[in-house]
């Protein structure tokens, strides 16, 4: 479904993606984790060409992203994307947000699109918020509307860019629940997140990145509990907050 072949990207002189090779098959749920600045979001954003790679190739659903003949609009219509800051259209209601692209890109009638929006809002548990504008919604509600907005295009792939990082802790689960049910339905998902619980529950593979490189790919137990790479091990012990006793710290006492 998605294949990275020797992908490289630079921001000016910074090498942000280093020789990325990764294959994601249909129905797989991939979690990308790693420290900030590792290139996780950039990697995710190359899949729908919000960012362009400078070298190598990415093939998504049989389309070569470096090929100038590839119809990007059509490709993007097949890939849903959910952002850290939701990015709902503030001037439109929940239903208006969800129906825009299906009507304009897919050419659905207003009635059809609205019907679909109602179904999706039911799915994310927001039937009662149909006519609310984004400012009237909580962060968790906004993110659920954003997921419904992406699903309305009936995408083949869903990309999540730290979907819960901007949420209050108590609102995170309502979003994760929607994502988990989506994963169980067989959606191909690529998720950049620090939610280890989510990864353990539904991820088929976890990709650990640091400094623009994929250091380790494996099933969740391997990466979280028994990582091979020392950098992964250091990261995980910080994430799980296992105290590291260090000589230099003791000396200070």
């Amino acid at each position: 479904m998605i294949k990275f072949i020797g992908a490289n990207k630079w921001f000016n002189n910074t090498h942000v993606l280093k020789n990325i090779n990764l294959e994601i098959t249909k129905g797989e749920v991939i979690v990308i984790c790693g420290p900030s600045g590792a290139g996780k979001s950039t990697l995710l954003r190359t899949i729908n060409k919000l960012e362009q790679i400078d070298d190598g190739e990415i093939i998504v659903d049989g389309m070569y992203l470096s090929d100038p003949k590839t119809d990007l609009t059509a490709l993007r219509a097949e890939i849903g994307m959910v952002f850290q800051h939701f990015n709902l259209y503030p001037h439109k209601t929940a239903v208006g947000n969800i129906t825009l692209a299906p009507r304009k890109v897919r050419g659905l009638s207003k009635e059809k699109a609205t019907e679909r929006a109602h179904k999706l809002l039911e799915k994310v548990g927001l039937t009662h918020r149909r006519d609310a504008h984004p400012v009237q919604l909580s962060g968790g509600e906004q993110q659920r509307v954003a997921i419904a907005r992406s699903l309305a295009m009936e995408p083949k792939i869903m990309l999540f860019d730290e979907p819960t990082s901007a949420l209050d802790p108590e609102l995170i689960n309502e979003v994760l629940d929607v994502m988990i049910s989506l994963a169980k339905e067989g959606m191909t998902m690529v998720v950049v997140t620090h939610e280890i619980g989510f990864a353990q529950k539904v991820a088929d593979k976890v990709v650990f990145m640091d400094d623009g490189e994929i250091l380790e790919v494996g099933v969740p137990p391997d990466i979280f509990v028994d990582p091979k790479h020392p950098r992964t091990r250091a990261f995980m012990s910080n994430v799980f907050h296992i105290p590291i006793f260090d000589d230099s710290l003791e000396e200070e006492d």
Partner: peptide, 10 residues
């Protein structure tokens, strides 16, 4: 906003 619009295929 623009990114959301782009990625939805508009």
């Amino acid at each position: 906003q623009r990114e959301a619009a782009i990625s939805s295929g508009l």
